[in-house]
């Protein structure tokens, strides 16, 4: 097992100082090189779980092991891509991508490596542009190149395409699939889109809300590229939907309750 999530619990205190369970007894093992989606409605703690793996959030109890080592803080072995590109606006595309490499290698070497990944996301011609000169989709591609540039074993992606339009999203799906096949990274991909998770991943972890728990672990066994297998995709979609239906109803009824009580 490459990534091992053992008995992870996460609580936080609400306004009345009452503990609220965000994640409850999460256990998960992920093989090296696997593309795993974490799928669930908003509020299921999927982003929190990813943030814990990244080392940005502490667990209340339980631990996470990567390659046998316990995770306690962020590290370059785990590259992270956020929903917003989080590029530094005062740096050019090239400077953004070489940001994580500055300390450990000479500028020339860093730039050669950065260029490789920028070409992988087809942005080799935008090296001296600033982030504000790029579209949202291009910015997100730079962010992916930046995470890849430090050559991490694991790529953590928190709804990376959530803020993009449909066409851009499907283009980036293809690119990400190619990058994954080329680089053999282990990818943890958080999303709330069922079709996105089926399109991309080997395995889908379906999560439920209140508290955040793992409902189902689904293996997606459809050959790639997957566009041609519409029937199989639909089958898995229905399968996942049967689990999520209850969760979505739960969220909706809670929202209605909240609306009525205010």
């Amino acid at each position: 097992m490459f990534i091992q999530i053992n008995e992870v619990n996460k609580q936080y205190n609400d306004k009345e100082n009452q503990p609220v369970d965000v994640l409850k007894e999460i256990n998960l093992s992920i093989d090296k090189g696997q593309f795993v989606s974490i799928l669930g409605p908003s509020g299921c703690g999927k982003s929190t779980l990813l943030s814990i793996v990244a080392g940005l959030t502490k667990t209340t109890s339980g631990q996470i092991l990567i390659d046998g080592k316990t995770i306690s803080k962020p590290g370059k072995d785990r590259g992270m891509v956020f929903q917003q590109a989080a590029l530094f606006p005062w740096l050019t595309v090239m400077e953004n991508v070489t940001f994580p490499l500055k300390k450990e290698m000479k500028k020339k070497v860093a730039e050669t490596s950065a260029l490789k990944y920028l070409q992988m996301v087809q942005l080799g011609k935008y090296l001296s542009h600033y982030p504000h000169e790029l579209s949202g989709g291009m910015q997100q591609r730079v962010a992916i190149a930046r995470a890849l540039a430090m050559n991490p074993e694991t790529l953590l992606m928190d709804e990376p395409f959530g803020a993009l339009d449909e066409q851009t999203r499907s283009r980036l799906h293809l690119q990400l699939e190619n990058i994954w096949m080329e680089t053999k990274k282990t990818i943890l991909f958080v999303t709330h889109s069922i079709s996105e998770s089926i399109k991309l991943s080997d395995r889908i972890i379906v999560m439920g809300t209140k508290p955040g728990t793992i409902l189902q672990d689904i293996t997606v066994d459809i050959p790639r590229p997957r566009e041609e297998y519409k029937k199989e995709i639909l089958e898995i979609e229905d399968h996942i939907m049967s689990y999520l239906k209850k969760e979505i109803d739960k969220v909706v009824s809670e929202e209605l309750e909240y609306a009525n009580s205010h």
Binding site: P74, G75, G79, F99, M150
Partner: peptide
């Protein structure tokens, strides 16, 4: 933005390095 800080931390920046860069 806390997002910049988080992103920088995942890229190995911390302490004075995080402040300056």
């Amino acid at each position: 933005s806390p997002l910049y800080i988080k992103a920088a931390q995942t890229m190995g920046a911390n302490g004075i390095d995080l402040f300056i860069r």
